[in-house]
């Protein structure tokens, strides 16, 4: 069973269709599967539901698929950095489901772990809880949230091996590990691809069982949304 593909297009071949649900890793522009997103643009599939914490910025990340109007609905916790998004949303062309960030992470984790629903305090007494089952446990009030799954997950990792074992780097991990577990088919882009056996088995973040295809993307362009620095103290 060969998981390693020669290009993002090959890695997604036969797995894209109109109206599908795609899970995408990343927080802001950190740890987003940019190369796979570009390949989805080239494939031209439309009517997509995309589950991702954010929606990219104009011209970068998922912002690319908004510009081409391939996305019909977003499930996110925060979409503040994207003007294209605001324009399409206010025009009624784009559907949006807000989910609190922790609830989103847990819904996907649950979806990947075969857990159809769970109870949380997050959102109790807010519009997030509207229409959802409310239950008391030990005197506290909780709202029921559903596990979440998709047809396809697209993930960005730092290192991967030919078996699909993955290691993420710093805060680029974010939503990627959960996304990898919660779709019928998971495609990963890695910055460094090595032979099985070369990664420390104790350091693997995502075991290869969750990964169907893997593509090596050397030296991806990583963008910084808010470049903040401090002055060097004068010597």
């Amino acid at each position: 069973m060969k998981k390693v593909m020669s290009s993002a297009t090959e890695a997604l071949a036969g797995r894209l269709k109109n109206g599908m649900t795609i899970l995408s890793g990343g927080f802001g522009l950190c740890g987003i599967p940019e190369t796979l997103i570009l390949a989805i643009r080239e494939a031209g599939v439309t009517g997509l539901t995309v589950i991702s914490n954010n929606a990219g910025v104009d011209g970068v990340g998922l912002g690319i698929l908004l510009e081409t109007r391939q996305i019909r609905k977003m499930v996110s916790s925060y979409v503040g950095e994207n003007k294209t998004f605001a324009t399409q949303y206010l025009a009624g062309e784009l559907e949006l489901e807000f989910t609190p960030q922790g609830t989103l992470a847990e819904r996907i984790r649950a979806g990947g772990a075969g857990i159809p629903a769970f109870f949380t305090r997050t959102g109790v007494g807010t519009i997030v809880a509207d229409g959802k089952e409310i239950r008391e446990f030990d005197g506290e009030t909780y709202v029921m949230e559903r596990g979440l799954r998709g047809d396809l997950a697209i993930v960005h990792a730092y290192q991967g091996d030919t078996e699909g074992n993955l290691i993420y780097r710093y805060t680029a991990r974010n939503f990627n590990p959960m996304m990898a577990t919660a779709a019928d088919f998971t495609v990963v882009e890695v910055e460094h691809l090595v032979a099985a056996g070369e990664l420390n088995p104790d350091a693997i973040h995502t075991p290869g069982i969750y990964v169907d295809r893997i593509v090596h993307v050397a030296n991806p362009e990583k963008r910084i949304e808010q470049r903040t620095t401090r002055p060097r103290t004068a010597a």
């Binding site: 927080f27 805060t171 680029a172 808010q226 903040t228 620095t229």
Partner: peptide, 22 residues
Amino acid sequence: PFPFEGEEDADLINAGKQTITM
């Protein structure tokens, strides 16, 4: 704290998407 200029890392940000350090 925020990194010195030239030491920003795109993989190391806070929840406000600002570059930070370890």
